[in-house]
Design a protein around this nucleic acid. Structure first.
Lengths: 332, 332
DNA sequence: GTGAAAGCGCTAACAG
DNA sequence: CTGTTAGCGCTTTCAC
């Protein structure tokens, strides 16, 4: 491996003249710089950013932690963030929490060891244990999509509780009286959505709302979770006339179940999802724009990294917007 | 930030006793180790892996470069690799090439500066310029999914040219005589697939096979590319009785086009895709298992990292397997 | 068992 | 403009 020292020896200059030349610092004569640049290229020099970061205390990397990249919301979020970060010459560590707090915490610790300049995380629950340590690390941390209970935290996303309220209320208004909630457990969105759902049911006089919440026994992708939850729902599907989905992907399982029971979706049962990108589907859902959230999150993180605590607002929360589609429109 | 030195001062021991204790090295008395561990935790010590890596010359990170994470093959590939890598205590830098050689090369350079222990890349074309530099870097590099022209390269994936041949031949066997190929340009799979397609057409006596290849003017996601390509195909769709898709996602656009022309898919026109995971669709396609490829790739990379050039085989290429579904089955 | 010293590759003062 | 010195936080000899 060729180092700055190697170059300095070849050229008979000091090692830090090389450093200055290579880093476009002033205080170096044009011809020296020229020569350094040339021989560096000729010798195949590639800077060692470990060494550089060690002294500058900045690595030019950020960390992103999401429950999965196979769920479209997260996929798009990640790609949006990465695309912009790359343009700003930041590299990104990606980590997958699989919706488990343990993995999330481990990833956090790991990324801190790597001395990332900042982190964007989709938190799995509302009170991550590591939260407080970030102040002592003095490391910018940004929660995204679903917020935590800490009000000293930075956040970009939506209020999932409100999403659930809006969606559930919509089903009531559309005439549903017996509504179920289907959840997955690995998206980190369950808690808030359940809360909003339960509240709304209670406001409508339902006694024990929690019994209408269905979730898989194990942590699985929403696509798969949908099928398991459908099985749990199977014995009592007839007693419901409305279904709220935590995530649009859960629909795959439900759809199959409805088929088996010869139930039609907008006919016998209305369905609406709390979170979805809603591309090319006929499912009523809250429209979440992961790309926009990603962009906002990244620019906020960059502010945090560069100006520390001088950011305008700590929380950027988009108002939920319901897009009504076929799945919740009473035919006729 | 608390360092080993801080701990050593508090405990009145030498700094490298702390190092040994923290790293489970022998040559340290049980009680010293115990005390070090305790105070380290109490003081909130988190090792600085930059410093460690600088001396050990190993970072515990790998880099992955894919054209996009919004294309299911790559999504699953990435998630599979990351999941396993995390279990082996490797962190992963992810980079997106958007199917452009420039981005790919930039990402490579960047990751080398970060001194990753190895890289897995889905190459955008068959002769990446950076290839030769890897030997001088002595950095394990593994191409995945589609191979390059270098036979000193390590590779895990399929032979996309064979895939294209198999698919095209299948359409001929099913009775098609005028076959078109629809490509996207950002997946890094175009070249090989085009080659296989063109060869097969030529073998069947087609004079100028290239004129039956359709691709978008710009680099876009296959989903979107499908719509643009469909437009290009629009004037002459009637003259085809078979369509080969580079990627199953291109079907979205084609489907719309067929609708507009009141053409039915297995009826008037047969369709088959060269690459797809084929989940829940009725599209004939080569079944690629990105998860398996990811696993194989990672374990090969680990071998390269740990045992350098002593890996059993340089190329692991899975034979393409065609799954025939509704889209290419003549009705009746 | 433990400590002192050297050094990984680089940047950041400061002198000259 | 250029060179010298002193680290960044850690591991690695090698004495004791």
């Amino acid at each position: 491996m060729v180092t700055m020292e190697d170059i300095s020896i070849v050229l008979g200059v000091s090692i830090n003249t090389v450093s200055k030349a290579l880093n476009n610092k002033p205080d170096v004569s044009p011809k020296t710089r020229q020569k350094v640049l040339e021989t560096a290229k000729k010798m195949g020099y590639v800077p060692n950013s470990l060494a550089k970061s060690l002294v500058t205390r900045s690595t030019g990397t950020i960390g992103i932690i999401v429950p999965s990249v196979r769920i479209s919301i997260y996929t798009e979020l990640v790609e949006a963030i990465m695309e912009r970060a790359a343009k700003m010459n930041y590299s990104t560590f990606l980590a997958i929490s699989v919706g488990e707090v343990g993995n999330e915490a481990a990833a956090i610790e790991n990324l801190y060891q790597k001395r990332v300049d900042g982190m964007i995380v989709v938190p799995v629950d509302r009170h991550p244990a590591y939260h407080s340590s970030f102040r002592v690390f003095n490391l910018p941390l940004l929660y995204v999509l679903s917020d935590t209970d800490y009000d000293d935290s930075y956040f970009v996303g939506v209020n999932l509780r409100d999403c659930a309220r809006l969606v559930t209320e919509h089903l009531y208004e559309s005439g549903c009286r017996r509504i179920a909630l289907l959840c997955s457990t690995c998206t980190g969105m369950k808690t808030d959505i359940e809360t909003g759902f339960v509240e709304t049911l209670r406001e409508h006089g339902v006694e024990d709302p929690l019994q209408h919440v269905f979730q898989p026994s194990l942590s699985q992708m929403p696509q798969d979770a949908g099928f398991e939850v459908a099985q749990i729902l199977d014995p009592c599907i007839d007693s419901y006339d409305g279904v709220v989905l935590e995530h649009e992907f859960l629909y795959f399982g439900l759809h199959e179940l409805l088929d088996q029971h010869a139930l039609s979706c907008p006919g016998d049962l209305l369905v609406a999802a709390c979170a979805g990108c809603g591309r090319g589907r006929s499912l009523t859902s809250i429209n979440i724009d992961p790309q926009q959230i990603g962009y906002d999150a990244l620019s906020m993180l960059m502010d945090l990294i560069h100006y520390r605590n001088n950011v305008a607002e700590k929380k950027v929360v988009t108002a939920p917007k319901l897009t009504i589609r076929k799945s919740s429109r009473r035919p006729g």
